[in-house]
Design a protein around this nucleic acid. Structure first.
Lengths: 128, 128
DNA sequence: GGTTGACTTCGCGTGCACTCGAACTGGAAG
DNA sequence: CTTCCAGTTCGAGTGCACGCGAAGTCAACC
């Protein structure tokens, strides 16, 4: 934006590698409104700032914890509306955290089943 | 099988409710080879034994921990081959357990990001 | 100044795991 | 006997999250 705040910007390819997504996905995220329109250079190519990359990184964490793209879009819309939506965004994160926590509890339970089965197989293998 | 071991069997609907899947899914699992062909009554309707239900329950745990249906099928095939595949089945479970554990570690990390963001929102809300 | 390679948009294709509609059947209740 | 419900098979449809091919553009390097 400002010439004084000019930072090192990344191309789609570079940004993709940094955040562990493909260039396809990065463009698609933008198209889907998960990412505000990314700045372009004189040739119309995307230039990702550090802030853009940070945002993308956050998105990958939300995605990885199972947040649907639909909800990520909702979150992005809130974020674009500025400070007035801070509480709403916090609520969104808290609700999501609750889901993640119960997902983790589920996994702990499932892990017990796996361990139980493995033990059983061990025993059964010995008794042949 | 044997008249003496006749147990209470369940219909698809009942079995579906017991394991938390739909009747559609139960039939589809059978068709996909995740479940050995289920016994039928005189009218050709499926009758699920306790063993069938136990197996389905295990499948739901595998599924919930992120095992692809493809791998579940592979596991089912091994199970149908009897005791000769005990070691292979254990190996399959151990590999899967490793994936689940790293998934859980991932979630722990992601949870930290969520907590961090929530804290930040709290602070930002106070400073308005 | 030509070649290379990474970018652009557009829209269709893919993989996974179900999900459902259609047409039919059979057993149980009133 | 009729009504009704839960079951049957078959194949087609859905939702999600991308993935990719085509056709074109542009900057950089030899």
């Amino acid at each position: 934006m400002d010439i004084s705040t000019r930072e090192t910007t990344l191309t789609v390819g570079e940004a993709a590698e940094r955040v562990g997504l493909t260039t396809y996905t990065l463009r698609w995220y933008e198209q889907e409104g998960l990412v505000a329109p990314v700045g372009r250079d004189s040739a119309g190519r995307r230039r990702y700032t550090e802030r853009d990359v940070d945002w993308l990184f956050l998105l990958t964490r939300l995605r990885r914890t199972g947040m649907p793209v639909r909800d990520m879009r909702r979150y992005a819309e809130l974020a674009r509306q500025g400070d007035a939506t801070l509480a709403a965004r916090r609520a969104l994160f808290e609700a999501h955290r609750a889901r993640v926590l119960s997902r983790m509890a589920e996994l702990e339970e499932d892990l017990k089943v796996l361990n139980y089965k493995i033990d059983n197989y061990r025993r059964a293998e010995r008794c042949r």
